[in-house]
């Protein structure tokens, strides 16, 4: 990868030969994954399959021992830190909802709002009218207009999930990494979330990690099943869920 072409691939995200090991344990093993622009991809797999580690590699939290991670065909993510990657347009929702507990719902969104992230730019800052409008609309989308001044720490688990999705929206990323968005949600909420993700997917590329097969089915997108750090099967939900090996290691029967 010494001479990088201006554009190596047309893919939005391109992973090839990515390996990560922790003290001898191979969390990712020669993983290859290609996500096209505008695509939504669901990632499934048993615990320890490397789903979260893959997210960590893409967002710069973990450096791979080997392999390429290319964003938009030009940027090698393995050499960048988390902040730079986030500013390139990759947003992430964590498995465990992580919001800023001591900030109000509104402030959480303001922090996430797409804007200049540099320290000095934020010393003298007042919200502009378009920004406030954007906040209003997101609050409406996630149904939290009434709770806008509540401290995020006092929200319920499901509300935190929604808030985090709202923050992801405010960030306006090109690629969204969404880790288990419906854990702890009711069926109705799960359905709403699926709809919301589809809505988002009209403009943005999305990668969803999820255990809930009903939810994955509801999304109706291409599915990748990971096992022991590499891709076990890839295809439509019907293809993957009938794959013998997937049934054996993951779905069970």
């Amino acid at each position: 990868m010494s001479e990088m072409d201006p554009r190596l691939t047309t893919a939005q995200l391109y992973l090839n030969g990515v390996s990560v090991s922790f003290d001898g344990f191979k969390a990712l093993n020669n993983l290859a994954l290609t996500v096209e622009p505008g695509e939504m991809r669901a990632i499934i797999g048993p615990n320890g399959a490397g789903k979260t580690t893959m997210m960590d590699v893409i967002t710069g939290k973990t450096r791979p021992d080997d392999g390429d991670v290319i964003f938009e065909g030009t940027r090698d993510l393995t050499t960048l830190d988390e902040a730079t990657i986030a500013n390139l347009g990759i947003g992430r929702k964590f498995q465990k909802p992580t919001v800023f507990e001591m900030h109000s719902v509104e402030d959480n969104l303001i922090l996430a709002l797409k804007a200049d992230r540099r320290a000095f730019a934020n010393l003298r800052w007042s919200e502009t009218a378009p920004e406030m409008e954007r906040i209003e609309s997101i609050l409406k989308t996630i149904r939290m207009t009434a709770t806008r001044h509540r401290l995020a720490g006092s929200l319920s688990h499901g509300q935190k999930q929604w808030l985090e999705i709202g923050m992801l929206l405010a960030q306006e990323p090109k690629l969204l990494l969404v880790d288990e968005p419906v854990a702890g949600m009711t069926d109705a909420e799960t359905h709403q979330t699926a709809e919301l993700l589809k809505e988002i997917n009209r403009e943005k590329t999305v990668i969803v990690v999820e255990h809930d097969m009903t939810f994955v089915r509801a999304l109706g997108v291409k599915v990748t099943c990971l096992h022991e750090g590499s891709v076990l099967a890839e295809g439509s939900i019907d293809q993957v869920s009938t794959d013998e090996r997937v049934i054996e290691v993951y779905l069970g029967r």
Partner: peptide, 22 residues
Amino acid sequence: SKFGKVLVAIRDAESRTRFLGY
């Protein structure tokens, strides 16, 4: 200021703040 909000965010969830691009 918003700077102060970022500071508190860092205090409470440093790595989350990074993933927001700060």
